[in-house]
Amino acid sequence: MLTLRTGKYTRQLAELDPAENYHEMVRIMAEHEFPLDTLIAGELAQLKTFGIPGIARLLHQTGRYEKESTKRLDDTKAILREIMQPGPDSPAGREMVGHLNQIHGFYKIPNHEFLYTLSLFIFETVRWNAVFGWRAMTVNEKEALYREFRDLGEAMNIQDIPPSYEAFEQWKTAYEQAHQTYTPEAEKVTVGILGGLAALLPVWIRPLTQTLVATLINDEQLLKVLGLKAPPLWQQRSILGLMKTRAWLGRHFNLWEKRSFADSRIINHYIHYPNGYQRMRLGPKVLVGRIYARKPLEQTD
């Protein structure tokens, strides 16, 4: 049900200090101020990692986006929620970070790839709101987002996290310029995630998934890197027109003005887990089985 936007959450965010209250600020943004935008940005952040050859190669080798894309998307959403909702420094958050670190420990992933992936969950959210959201994020909101994900990175033992929002943004830009390139693996994994994303959309819009995603990526170079073609201009203009209408509506109405997005059917809907999930069993089945059996890895799924 549409409710008039009162601006109370915007005012709360403006009154909070990102140096002290960044977790509360991120919670307000994710549950009331920019909830759906944050969710969509997180999905696109995953897709953008494929532009790095090492990441695309590993993801192709595991086959998780190509063989069980909806499970991979569900696992990522659930794991991040289990960490970020209570906070990376909370007991529940630390427990889930430990679980995530154990899963990652089965692979030889260089620190710079962890760092780049971490950066995307910050800067894709900022980009999305600036281009498609009902308003752009403020300096303090960006700082809060940076600090929250910095905490996550530190909990994951990621090294050399840049010391400020601005420094991290510069690092991300330079990293993309140095490493982002097309590979066949990137194209294959992209096709896989598009299938998973289609399953999240209403049936009537699923045939347009690639057109929709390519338009929302809004980056011609990245489309080439991922092996995607830019849609015809008339399709792009139609989608962008709908997004402008959505932004206008968002300035005046808020679906989560009186309720939390954390309780909504959207965030709680998991295709692979229709009856709910066991939080410490999230992740690739074989790897989770190895964790619990305390056996060395013999194969990946």
Rank of each mutant, 00 (worst) to 15 (best):
L212Y: 10
D219L: 01
I205C: 10
L201G: 07
R237W: 07
K142G: 13
M156Q: 00
K229H: 02
L216F: 04
W204T: 09
P231Y: 12
A198M: 07
P232L: 14
P202D: 14
L228M: 15
D151Q: 13
L222N: 15
V213Y: 05
A214V: 02
A198K: 13
A198Y: 01
E148Y: 04
S238I: 04
A214E: 00
K224I: 06
L197K: 13
K142F: 09
A178E: 11
M243N: 00
I205N: 08
A174G: 11
A214N: 01
G250N: 03
N218W: 09
A199Q: 11
I239V: 15
G192Y: 00
L212D: 03
L212N: 11
L212W: 11
F253Q: 13
N254L: 13
G250T: 05
L201D: 12
A178N: 06
A186L: 04
L208W: 14
T245Q: 10
T190A: 07
I158H: 06
P207M: 08
A174T: 08
T183F: 06
D160N: 15
W234P: 02
I158R: 10
P184E: 05
Q210H: 08
V203W: 14
K142M: 13
W234I: 01
T181P: 11
Q221M: 12
P163C: 03
L200G: 00
V203E: 15
Q221T: 14
T138S: 15
L242H: 06
L197E: 12
E166C: 11
L240Y: 08
N157L: 13
I205Q: 07
H252C: 09
L249K: 13
P207R: 00
D219S: 13
T183Q: 10
Q236T: 15
G227Y: 09
F253Y: 07
N254I: 01
R147P: 02
T190Y: 05
L228Q: 11
Y175Q: 09
P162Y: 02
M156G: 06
L200C: 00
E176R: 03
H179T: 06
D160W: 14
Q159M: 13
F168W: 02
K224C: 04
A155Q: 10
A167T: 12
Y182C: 05
Y165P: 06
E220R: 10
Q180Y: 13
V189G: 05
T181M: 12
I217Q: 04
N218K: 02
L216T: 02
F253P: 03
M156E: 04
